[in-house]
Write a protein that binds this DNA or RNA. Structure first.
Lengths: 183, 183
DNA sequence: GTTTACTATGCAATATATTGCATATCAATG
DNA sequence: CATTGATATGCAATATATTGCATAGTAAAC
């Protein structure tokens, strides 16, 4: 039920529509919790069914109307309680690592390519992270409490991203010593 | 369909029963791909239905009989092909980070506790990783090709684990500056 | 003026994962 | 000799996630 709590968390600061939430999940909170729009729309209906969210339709001009959700008092309480619940040990699944277990002369080149692509992606993400950090989290000790938490999540993302880049380099280095075999 | 491929990968070196696979998934490959025994048993039946695995019953004394699975030629081919498939962008979901977005005076102490627990867990895992590295991967350049891939997965685990410890310290440090509020 | 892109929401089917329970043998503990 | 724990496999129900498709209005590009 963590997606629901992630959504409520996103709604703590602003009321948002499903579409806007889906957009948001591609950045910020979505760095740590991805979700597709289908999932979000379903979850929104569930949450408002539980009265943890309120909804209202907003008429728009030049665009289809949207349904904007806001967190209710009951929602805030449920969220606050959830923070104290025991976190199930996280999933941590990555195809790439399973693929690496299958490393062989026939696929070195391909795997090196995948790693290079991931490296690129991570570079771009880090660029984004850094931009956010510089703009909003330059002095973490001075932030209001809640923002300190957000900062820490960001800091983890940055550290792990940098670490990942270093690993990519190590990996590409090692892979380059393997004789590739065409198909 | 990646669980299936993870299972076949595990069966590349040894034939194993569902129970043994489930045990294995708690270590080694399971560091990068967790799965419960229910999932594994179901997947095994699916895979042998596709003739990617063969099965035979092994009579045991002092223990219930077991069904041992081995990868077939067709399975090996499917696995080798899968390595070239496009990896869907990984999931990356962590309750703890969502919780951090909800940081407040009422839950600092709790969150600090969760981070401390995670730190402990990671220390233990790192200890395991390091033991494996020293024993089997001391000289990565000299390993046979496939083992180089396994080494790289391990290396990523180690680097990210160490990075995580450093982050925990940073986080605990920052959290300690926040005034905690009892309930 | 037709195509493409963005906003906005949704259904249905399938795939994947989790939770709880059930069964059965044997060894060791108390 | 009753309980606990390890081995060994499985069903059923629910929860969660993914994939493909459908609709519909407007704006901008060509």
């Amino acid at each position: 039920m963590a997606l629901g709590h992630a959504i409520m968390t996103a709604l703590l600061e602003d009321d948002l529509s499903g579409y806007e939430l889906a957009k948001d999940f591609e950045t910020s909170l979505g760095f740590f919790w991805q979700a597709s729009h289908q999932q979000i729309y379903q979850e929104l209906r569930k949450l408002s069914g539980k009265h943890w969210l309120s909804k209202r339709e907003v008429t728009q001009r030049g665009k289809p109307n949207k349904i904007v959700y806001g967190i209710t008092k009951a929602g805030r309480e449920a969220l606050a309680q959830w923070v104290f619940s025991t976190t199930r040990t996280q999933t941590a699944k990555d195809d790439l690592l399973v693929k690496l277990y299958n490393l062989g002369p026939g696929n070195v080149a391909h795997l090196a390519g995948e790693i290079t692509a991931r490296r690129e992606e991570m570079m771009q993400r880090l660029y984004l992270y850094e931009k956010i950090r510089r703009r909003h989290y330059a002095a973490p000790e001075l932030l209001p409490t809640r923002r300190k938490g957000v900062y820490l999540a960001l800091a983890l993302g940055i550290h792990q991203g940098e670490q990942f880049l270093a690993w990519c380099d190590e990996a590409l280095d090692l892979l380059s010593t393997i004789e590739s075999q065409g198909l």
